[in-house]
Write a protein that binds this DNA or RNA. Sequence first.
DNA 1: TTGAAAGCGGTACCAA
DNA 2: TTGGTACCGCTTTCAA
Lengths: 339, 339
Amino acid sequence: MAVRMKDIARDLGVSVVTVSKVLRNHSDIGEETRERVLKRMKELNYQPNLAARALVTGRTSMAGLIVPDLTHPFFAQVAKGLSQGLRKKGYGLIISSSEEDPELERREIEQLLARRVDVLIIASAQWTVESFRRIEECKTPYVLIDRQFAGLAANFVGVDDVAVGAMATGHLLAAGAKRVAHIRGPEVSTALGRAEGYRQALAARGLAPLAGYVAAGASGDDRGDVSGYQAMRRLLALEPRPDGVFCYNDPIAMGALKAILEAGLRVPEDVAVVGCGNVLYAELLRVPLSSVDQDSASIGKQAARLALSLVESKTRPRPRSVLVKPTLVVRQSSLRQSV
Amino acid sequence: MAVRMKDIARDLGVSVVTVSKVLRNHSDIGEETRERVLKRMKELNYQPNLAARALVTGRTSMAGLIVPDLTHPFFAQVAKGLSQGLRKKGYGLIISSSEEDPELERREIEQLLARRVDVLIIASAQWTVESFRRIEECKTPYVLIDRQFAGLAANFVGVDDVAVGAMATGHLLAAGAKRVAHIRGPEVSTALGRAEGYRQALAARGLAPLAGYVAAGASGDDRGDVSGYQAMRRLLALEPRPDGVFCYNDPIAMGALKAILEAGLRVPEDVAVVGCGNVLYAELLRVPLSSVDQDSASIGKQAARLALSLVESKTRPRPRSVLVKPTLVVRQSSLRQSV
DNA sequence: TTGAAAGCGGTACCAA
DNA sequence: TTGGTACCGCTTTCAA
């Protein structure tokens, strides 16, 4: 069924080696021979057998991606961008979802290593760096996305989370909020960075968070709307009441929105809200939600670039960190007088 | 670096063939030998080289998935379910997104065929069946999901779209709506099926759509909210005005919601709305949206089962069609007196 | 510029 | 029950 080099070689009376060289544009092939071979390849619609090539070169032309949850819009967009970037260079992408479960993630990593992918891209749900040591043992290059690890010098592509927090908080302050609260995320680098940005923006105006103004939101990433709702209720019970809130992500912000409206307060007049992630349909909510956009597609593209540079470089260059600039999308939930 | 059969064989003083047989639990191996080999495999953390195996068996242990848009929640969920189902049996999943572009989809198919995936799963954006003939030529089994093609006998897993339309429309009628309209989707099997279900539900009560009550919605799948908004404005201008509307999908329904509220009408009192797809956060909208759930995860699981059965069967069984039953999730947008 | 020979790491077949 | 041998389709090396 499938056409092989051998078939082309036989048809043309040349050797298999010659065909192989033409395929990879080796320089030492006569112009005429090259043309004949290329012509025949087209005619037969020849497709090299990647398994055979992988066996001898040790390169599979495949990358592996592991995300905590493929149905999360952010990761879906990253996956899409990554897949496109890699495919342009002839790389395939094997995707798996770890369900935010470190143990499952570890097994996925083993699976992909067993498959000899040329490079791994991971948005990790781990708490320790153990798995990454394992990857390093296999000498498989890898790129972390979204979440970083303190004390692990690794290639990284993500958004500048401190900038996210500072931008959102600064915007709320500029919009006239005097008492800005924050609903935190889980103990991962993204949440820590955003909380830090929140503090920095306050500090830049000589302010500090009031007591109880930093509330715990989601522990995991799922059902953030529920935990956002609960956290906001706690914040509303405080005295004085916050008049602005920056939420770790959009689901949390949606839950917060619900809590505020239920309490009979107005958004943004009484409490202004900013989320993060800029989910689709943010503008179709009860109050269209202002949100910091993380440009997930660009994170995917950058990760693809970095991953490709790693597999192509023969040496192991020292880890690079790529930070994508976030942008603020202002909608009604934070649109007040002074903006 | 990587451990090979040869290493294990040498360590144990047996032949490579013996090791190979143990790995695949061939029956004709002595109990003692088998144990020694397994023990050594564990010790060295042996992982078979799938490229080598693929070369000789012709099977890659990989499946390919092509969807129109990976960031669409429905397809993301399908991909997740599929990936999980396949991985359990040791299959990897290569995913690509065709951006609703038939030409791009065709190229993706070629790519995956060139990679010799063992089976393809496709939610197709094609208009013709040409690409599928091409897949058949390569003798690669494939499963269509979500969208079917008239005149193509193929394996299929999807939701029963006629049931979707009938269920949503029946619910609106039961909720007291007298004049139910429909905003259609593009000319693909899913939209045609739902429209047919809409007609059947009306006919079951001796009704027929009033003039102009079936409005054209999205042409593609993106920005459905915009086209839903426009379509709903046209519907509201009709006399008599519809008091219920079944929308092809949730984005369209969200746009419709917006149009209704902007017109100063109430949902569900003046116009009840039902969408389809049950997107996350449907309940956080301005009016929580009733929607027909397609159980996308189960579609993924079923597709995995079907795909696995295809690669495992030596004969080419005749195509099977698996229809998943939809369920209705009632929320405020259709919650009226009589329900 | 071209090609013969030697593998890459497995599996299949058949003989011992 | 075990293992020798051929070979899967391609690349690498080196000699012609």
